[in-house]
């Protein structure tokens, strides 16, 4: 019974989060759902979208809803790693003695918006990504832990590529999802204009806190997944590798290199959350299929054949999913 209450509470909190976010973000339902899944799963999200589609607003609104400290880092080419992580500074105390103390950088928040992360230098990017992976900062030999839950939502502008430093694949792998935020349709745009004419401020209210997010994370981790579904996810990731003997036809034809094992971990972890968010108590093939694109699109690289045929990563992933379904029958 207690567990039923916990599950009921989970569903209510999810509904509350969505309701609050809907007050500030028009449309983008899939983005919102996947962001929620990523937060509960304990992963970070890379958001790609043109300026003005609401990436920052989403994160701000999320921070308000989740009652989590929020910081925004606008990445520029001159941003130094210490600008992100923080640095030791020398201070004179009351006695006039010089002491060093660590000034925390903007990364020390629960919810961090890393805007235009591809504009930062690789050195700064790697400092950021280390924190994302390990949830701690090491400066001058001292390690400083970041409070949980820690969630980074990084953004990329697909339009301005001049003077940018595309994230290396190893670092892209640290994002559990890459989500594509599309330009709103006319109706959505009309709603956005109407809403922001009233106020530009986010109106979302607090619905859950960090502790509750952690509880939800723990609950989602207990959702069972059967061997067949697990193998289905593993096969999907494995079939992105063209170099393997028993790989898929699609991979051999269209993929240059495939996803890492983190993709399989991300698929299962996030699928558990997705199942529970949708009111199910087990992971299904549908959960894996729904998360295939967000999990894999930034982890595979399509080859020139795909480019020639004007196939995007999402197109290739769709083919992989269909092929995987046939093989699983």
């Amino acid at each position: 019974m207690e567990n039923m209450e916990r599950v009921a509470a989970f569903s209510q909190k999810i509904a509350a989060i969505k309701e609050q976010l809907a007050r500030d973000v028009v449309g983008q339902q899939e983005i919102i759902d996947n962001v929620i899944i990523a937060i509960i799963a304990g992963g970070n999200v890379l958001l790609e979208g043109v300026p003005g589609v609401g990436k920052t607003r989403l994160v701000r609104s999320l921070a308000k809803t989740l009652q989590l400290p929020f910081s925004r880092i606008q990445f520029t080419p001159d941003l130094m790693p210490s600008d992100v992580t923080g640095t030791n500074i020398v201070e004179k105390d009351d006695n006039g003695k010089l002491n060093t103390s660590f000034r925390k950088g903007p990364i020390f928040a629960n919810l961090v918006l890393a805007d235009e992360i591809n504009r930062a230098t690789p050195k700064t990017q790697s400092a950021m990504l280390e924190v994302m992976q390990e949830h701690k900062v090491t400066v001058a030999g001292e390690t400083y832990k970041i409070d949980e839950p820690f969630f980074v939502l990084a953004t990329e502008n697909p339009v301005e590529q001049d003077g940018t430093y595309p994230l290396p694949e190893a670092q892209m792998d640290r994002f559990v999802f890459k989500l594509l935020m599309k330009f709103p349709n006319k109706a959505e745009l009309a709603d956005i204009v109407r809403m922001t004419q009233i106020t530009m401020e986010e109106t979302a209210e607090a619905s859950v806190n960090g502790e509750e997010i952690m509880e939800m994370r723990a609950l989602a981790a207990t959702v069972p997944v059967i061997g067949d579904v697990l193998n289905y996810a593993i096969n999907l990731v494995s079939n992105t590798h063209p170099e393997l003997d028993d790989t898929s036809v699609t991979a051999k034809k269209y993929i240059k290199y495939g996803a890492s094992p983190r993709a399989a971990q991300a698929l299962i972890t996030c699928a558990k959350v997705r199942a529970l968010v949708n009111g199910n108590y087990n992971v299904s093939y549908a959960d894996i299929d729904a998360l295939a694109c967000p999990v894999l699109r930034h982890r595979i690289k399509v080859n020139y054949t795909a480019v020639n045929e004007r196939l995007t990563a999402d197109d290739v992933i769709g083919m992989l999913v269909r092929e995987n379904k046939k093989l699983s029958k």
Partner: peptide, 17 residues
């Protein structure tokens, strides 16, 4: 949605979920 298979696969397991 694999409910029946999960039920059968975990019939010997215990746990609230």
């Amino acid at each position: 949605g694999e409910r029946a298979q999960t039920m059968v696969a975990y019939k010997q397991h215990n746990g609230p979920m």
